[in-house]
Design a protein around this nucleic acid. Structure first.
Lengths: 198, 198
DNA sequence: CCATCTTTGTGCACGCGTTCACAAAGACAT
DNA sequence: ATGTCTTTGTGAACGCGTGCACAAAGATGG
């Protein structure tokens, strides 16, 4: 039975082993004293806790470059996500295959969400269309939305929205880059604050 | 002179006004007691501190769907990022226009990085090509890398890497979704831990 | 010029999460 | 069995960030 100790895992992850053990303890007592954690069992328990063992049907709305990239993204299937449908307002796209799936018209949204019990929607439309799509998704029964469009969406209580801004990470890199350069020459007028993104 | 108080800003951002004032104070004393913060001046100071006022030339490597989506992403230009070049290993793509820029061959990487003093590279290649591209970028002088490929990159000290996993946000939504559903029926065997992603 | 009012900037206290440190548990050898 | 050794699980201490509360600063009006 292959096992790992909290010490090994902590070293690999670069965190404190006590914290790791305490975190695991919230999921239950899955370790064996003097031995460590059974790898296979631990993986299963964490997967289950994170919802990776469930099947999550999702719809992707807006099949431009980003939508197509998401549809092709390999990481989805392995984490329990199943693309139930690709939707776009452009009728010219309808029927075209993207990542092996036919693009369907946005008007099929309601039917598809209902038939597949979709609770998660991904928005990869232009900013202008995002709110309308959101409203339709919510009305159709979707309760979680991942928004790639550069707009703040308003949703009723009980609906979760997460906004992904592809440039934020770039901005964090630029911030650090500025710091690297700035270590040589002093700042133009004064203060170098102690704050910084993680 | 249009001004804004820490109280107003805090309410809009949904945070504590004291924390906001303390955060601002790290950048210097830009407020006026009894009045608030001069909006224009505050915006400028924060922009400068974040590096938004600088020009950041970047190269995007791997012009598939994701690379193309990034090249078209509007949020870049407004934050000081300038796409110096689009690179791909596929010679068939060479010369094709994406977001108004011609795709150039990966072998031009070294020249382009040197000529434009590029310090930030974006990797949107398949996982298999990511490490090699990274090595070439680093050798050419790039010191910050934004990695969209599903691989962990190894880089020498002094080089920053940020990895973007497009499915992580989806996973967080699924986690909360699971919780919503789980509030009704009890968990299969026991413990509902108190931990959760933000 | 003084009084009053508003809002900043910050010392201080509180609370929460991280880390330390160790008792308890189990494996394994003798 | 008994002892030794390893590693977990967790109570307690510590440290850091958040929020409170107020003095200082400046605006504004009489």
């Amino acid at each position: 039975m292959p096992t790992v100790s909290s010490e090994e895992l902590a070293a690999a992850a670069g965190v404190n082993s006590a914290k790791l053990r305490k975190d695991f303890s919230y999921l239950g007592s899955y370790g064996t004293r003097g031995v460590g954690y059974d790898v296979e069992y631990l993986v299963y328990q964490i997967s289950r806790e994170l919802g990776l063992t469930q099947d999550w049907p999702v719809v992707i709305v807006g099949i431009g470059n980003l939508g197509a990239a998401l549809a092709n993204y390999g990481g989805f299937a392995s984490r329990g996500f199943r693309v139930a449908a690709l939707l776009d307002a452009d009728t010219a796209l309808a029927g075209r295959l993207v990542a092996g799936l036919p693009v369907r018209h946005i008007d099929e949204l309601e039917t598809i969400v209902a038939d597949n019990q979709v609770s998660i929607g991904v928005i990869a439309t232009p900013a202008g269309a995002a709110q309308e799509v959101t409203d339709r998704l919510v009305a159709a029964g979707v309760t979680s939305i991942l928004n790639f469009a550069p707009t703040v969406l308003s949703v009723p209580d009980g609906v979760d929205v997460r906004k992904v801004d592809l440039s934020i990470e770039l901005q964090i890199l630029a911030f650090h880059e500025q710091r690297k350069a700035g270590d040589d020459r002093p700042e133009p007028d004064g203060d170098v604050p102690a704050v910084m993104p993680a």
